[in-house]
Design a protein around this nucleic acid. Structure first.
Length: 674
DNA sequence: GAGCACTGC
């Protein structure tokens, strides 16, 4: 094996780290930074008085890099070199180098906010800018001012010039550059405007048709592989197989191939210049899935995939002018594209002295609107009080590895005896995207038989459906064949089982009722139509309520800003015999695709939501945020006037009830006439 | 009757 580029810089790295608390290291792909940096520091005594920890953005990376380093050092994995990811801690008291996901490190700071067991913290792949990474950078910056400098060092690695920005954030700390080991990639631009944004499966079909229509023998044989995250693992791994001889491999991939998966032997890359990105609008509480232009960093990352084993070429389906003038340098970081309710709660639970969340030192601060939205949500689910201070409920919530709505649901369920069911639902929703069989995807056609019909939620909605699915699986003794028959993703289902186990363990010390999965015969809740469970969901989702329109099956959300939304077509909820959907529901999320939808809904009763509406009326964002105002314009974002006006639009529950009743009678009368 | 990119505790 050739010597990795980073090893030539060993002396320089050691000297810089010795003399500086924080060092930024810019190292391209193939520089060996992930495996070598920890070993270099280990060799020079930086692990003598503590452990060197290295964060990774993905679980597989943490495991494989740890394995590699253990091998290189000739030690057993889990001893001197170990790793920690969710559900799996392979470290011991002997561990001096520890790889972990950024999420795990963030959790660790809950029990030790100064992370004293670590003498060195390496934040690897910081350019990916995950939400966890951004919060960690803020926390670590604070530690630099607190911990004893004799026994604490921080390194932040990045694959791009973003490193300069990180250096500024850390008060102008030194930046080291380490070259990568990529082969040259020739970049070819086009001036044509492309409009091809076909689904992967559709494009694969098109390409296959096109190649088939060519004259035999005029081109090399070709195989086409789709590659995206919702593909079953056994189909994903096909891309790693070498193609038959005299046959060319075409891989049509999402950005999963940009960083998560590396396919060796790629010589040509075709880059559309676009990416599908999910973003959150704090004004409406709605997510949207948009096709957006990539950044220059992403474009270069894509091109780099062509140069891993030999010189390659990258065809960019856009012009060099677009690349230079239109593309942003780096993508908008996740912290500015997502709801921050969970992160704000987490930071509040750390009780960092002198740290106000709204003034927290972020590399790229989230907008005031996003922070205000997070505070409002947390207030409505009792995680913070009217002054913005964390409550005891909020503290318990922060300890659970769940989004705030679900942790609040668990606590409420524990109080009313429906904990067992709530645990299952929380676990199912944690893995939800990769569980249920999806509609007419290309792979569907190739399936041998159509899956059996899943439970329908008994008219109560998607949460109850998810509960029933897991209960059925539990009754089979977690049989893999059963999952196959129902078209459920096995990997997803076992993940649910693990999450549920973890949640049970965390809830054990405060559990007031059973936590074991209950079968359909023993479930008292089932007989009662899951009233307690749905009530608990209503408490947890107090910030995500909607009521049906009187005359049709559209809904409007009951928040500060009412939104008109529809039930997502994937929902199991069906109109009743009168053709109407339930009057009140809670939803897991709002997402705009072709139009605004509520995903994962559960029916709730009107009388459960009136206390929530009252709470909405008294909500004062000024108090919640401790009087902090938007630095952008100096105007209090949600002045009293605005909030009162919005609240007035929501009629009193009694009004609604009689109106709905009247409408129903009219509707029935019409039906009879027919 | 429309349709989910990718991660993580």
């Amino acid at each position: 094996m050739d010597k990795l580029p980073i090893l030539q810089f060993e002396a320089k790295i050691v000297e810089t780290v010795k003399n500086n608390l924080v060092t930024v290291l810019i190292g391209e792909t193939g520089s060996g930074k992930s495996t070598q940096l920890s070993q270099i520091l280990f060799r020079h005594g930086f692990a003598d008085s503590g452990t060197i920890c290295v964060t990774q953005p993905r679980r597989v990376a943490a495991v494989s890099v740890a394995r590699r380093v253990a091998h290189e050092m000739g030690v057993r994995l889990g001893e001197e070199v170990g790793y920690a990811i969710r559900f799996e801690d392979r470290t011991s008291t002997k561990t001096r180098i520890k790889y972990l996901t950024d999420g795990v490190l963030l959790r660790e700071s809950l029990s030790d906010s100064e992370l004293r067991s670590y003498s060195v913290i390496i934040l690897d792949e910081a350019h990916e800018r995950s939400l966890n990474m951004d919060i960690l950078m803020g926390l670590v910056k604070r530690l630099v001012g607190i911990r004893d400098s004799a026994n604490f060092r921080v390194l932040i690695t990045s694959a791009t010039l973003e490193g300069e920005k990180v250096s500024e954030f850390f008060n102008g700390c030194p930046v080291l550059n380490v070259p990568g080991k990529l082969f040259p990639v020739e970049v070819i631009y086009t001036d044509e405007v492309t409009k091809s944004q076909e689904d992967i499966e559709k494009l694969v079909q098109k390409l296959e048709d096109r190649v088939r229509s060519l004259e035999e023998g005029s081109v090399m044989d070709a195989v086409f592989y789709p590659l995206h995250g919702s593909l079953p693992p056994e189909l994903q791994v096909r891309v790693f197989n070498p193609p038959p001889s005299n046959c060319r491999r075409f891989i049509v991939a999402t950005n999963i191939a940009e960083t998560s998966l590396t396919v060796d032997g790629v010589v040509y890359v075709i880059d559309s210049g676009y990416v599908k990105q999910r973003q959150y609008n704090p004004q409406t509480g709605m997510y949207s899935l948009d096709i957006v232009q990539i950044s220059r960093v992403q474009a270069n990352q894509r091109a780099g995939r062509a140069g891993r084993t030999c010189p390659g070429k990258c065809y960019r389906l856009y012009s060099s002018i677009v690349y230079k003038d239109d593309f942003m340098e780096a993508a908008v970081p996740e912290i500015q594209r997502t709801s921050l309710a969970g992160s704000v709660l987490y930071l509040k639970s750390l009780d960092l002295p002198g740290i106000d969340i709204l003034k927290f030192d972020f590399l790229d601060p989230p907008s005031y609107a996003t922070l205000g939205d997070a505070l409002r949500q947390l207030y409505l689910i009792d995680a913070i009080d009217e002054n913005g201070a964390i409550t005891s409920v909020g503290r318990t919530m922060a300890e659970l590895p769940l989004e705030p709505s679900l942790s609040r649901t668990l606590i409420a369920a524990n109080e009313n005896g429906s904990l067992s069911q709530a645990l299952t639902i929380a676990a199912m929703l944690s893995a939800e995207t990769s569980l249920l069989p999806s509609f007419a995807k290309g792979s569907e056609k190739k399936r041998k038989h159509t899956p059996l019909k899943l439970p329908d939620g008994g008219g109560l909605g998607d949460h109850i459906q998810l509960l029933h699915i897991f209960e059925l699986w539990n009754e089979t003794g977690y049989d893999i064949e059963w999952c196959k028959e129902y078209g459920l993703q096995i990997r997803g289902m076992s993940f649910v089982k693990d999450v549920r186990g973890q949640l049970c363990q965390l809830m054990q010390k405060m559990a007031k009722c059973a936590t074991e999965v209950q079968g359909k015969h023993q479930s008292r809740e089932r007989k009662m139509n899951y009233r307690n469970l749905r009530r608990a969901l209503c408490v947890g989702y107090a910030n995500q309520l909607a009521e049906r329109m009187i005359r049709h099956n559209g809904y409007r959300t009951l928040g500060l800003k009412s939104q008109l939304v529809q039930l997502h077509p994937s929902s199991v909820l069906q109109p009743d015999e009168d053709g109407m959907l339930p009057n009140y529901v809670v939803y897991q999320e709002l997402i705009t695709t072709s139009s605004p939808f509520m995903r994962n809904v559960c029916t709730v009763e009107m009388q459960w939501i009136s206390p929530i509406l009252k709470k909405l009326e008294t909500l004062d964002i000024n108090k919640l945020s401790g009087g902090f105002t938007d630095p952008e314009d100096g105007i209090k974002e949600n002045d009293q006037g605005v909030s009162k006006k919005e609240v007035k639009e929501v009629e009193s529950p009694a009004d609604r009830d009689s109106k709905i009743q009247a409408a129903r009678e009219r509707f029935l009368a019409r039906k009879v006439k027919k």
